[in-house]
């Protein structure tokens, strides 16, 4: 080992970063922590799912209960993402393109579900629609089923995923301003034409990004859905709920097989998110 040459420039360089020992220790701590707390739990899902072989894995996934849970999860996600997309875009238009009093308050209200415990997000609907709830007697008299049925599961899911679309689109649309839209309007375009031909192409990556994150949360929601679902087998169990039931019945391969589908959804979401973030960054104005 030769002595490192100390020139003024490297000495100055040394003042701008940490000694190599400290650098290595910090990297080692960061990598170890992320491996133990984040990577290993993910790996263990697949290891457990395939612990009895590929045959057992696919047998678990083709069980009628599993198929019904997958169908219900897809349906609930389609309903809640669809509705939140429409209303999220509408809310982003109102908030980003106009100035009005109370804008900060409105944004905070839209953000509320992020800070409410999932269990409480389910509880509020039980208090509204349950047998002892405010609307319970009326619903019973008219034979309308919300709780322990698909509408309740969809409502709870819409509640927890409420902020995703609006929160992603508001900063994007604010950044883009209103000049292009004003030009379109002054050239005689209608409001809807302006939105679909001017605004939407500008925010399309943001829309896709928000749908992606909203969908991941909708398909994976557990606490809120658990409270309103009633756990009726083959009817009101979503995939995360079925994971719980199978796990509690010691059917570990089946539980982790369903869990592995949800884990793959999470991984695909992350990869797609990384790609979309690159598109979104390119879309930013230079110097921003």
């Amino acid at each position: 080992m030769s002595q490192p040459k100390i020139s003024p420039s490297t000495a100055r360089e040394d003042l701008r970063t940490e000694p190599q020992v400290i650098r290595i220790v910090i990297i080692a701590i960061a990598v170890t922590f992320l491996t133990v707390f984040v990577v290993l739990p993910l790996v263990v899902v697949f290891a457990q799912a395939f612990s009895k072989g590929i045959g057992a894995y696919f047998a678990a996934l083709s069980d009628p209960e599993a198929l019904s849970a997958i169908r219900l999860t897809l349906m609930v996600a389609a309903i809640s993402v669809g509705l939140n997309l429409v209303f999220g875009v509408i809310a982003a238009w109102a908030i980003a393109k106009f100035d009005f009093r109370g804008k900060t308050l409105l944004i905070s209200l839209i953000d509320l579900p992020f800070s409410v415990s999932p269990v409480i997000s389910g509880l509020v609907f039980v208090l509204l629609f349950g047998a002892q709830g405010f609307l319970g007697p009326w619903l019973q008299a008219n034979d309308v089923h919300i709780l322990f049925a698909v509408p309740g599961i969809a409502l709870a899911t819409i509640f927890v995923t409420f902020p995703f679309v609006a929160r992603a689109l508001i900063p994007l649309m604010q950044e883009q301003g209103t000049q292009e839209e004003e030009a379109a309007i002054s050239l005689g375009a209608s409001g809807l034409q302006t939105f679909f031909r001017v605004t939407l192409p500008n925010i399309k990556w943001g829309v896709l990004y928000s749908v992606l994150l909203c969908n991941a949360r909708a398909m994976g929601e557990f606490g809120a859905v658990s409270v309103v679902s009633g756990h009726i087998r083959g009817e009101t169990n979503t995939m995360p709920l079925l994971v719980e039931i199978l796990y509690n019945e010691y059917q570990f391969v089946a539980a982790f097989a369903i869990a592995s589908l949800l884990a793959m959804l999470a991984l695909i979401t992350l990869v797609a998110k990384t790609i979309l973030e690159r598109h979104l960054d390119e879309g930013r104005l230079p110097g921003d």
């Binding site: 739990p41 993910l42 994976g220 709920l241 869990a259």
Partner: peptide, 17 residues
């Protein structure tokens, strides 16, 4: 990228894992 996994992984999956 891995840092985001706890955001993306459904909580029930994280729980059993």
């Amino acid at each position: 990228a891995i840092v985001d996994i706890p955001f993306a992984l459904p909580t029930a999956v994280a729980g059993v894992a």
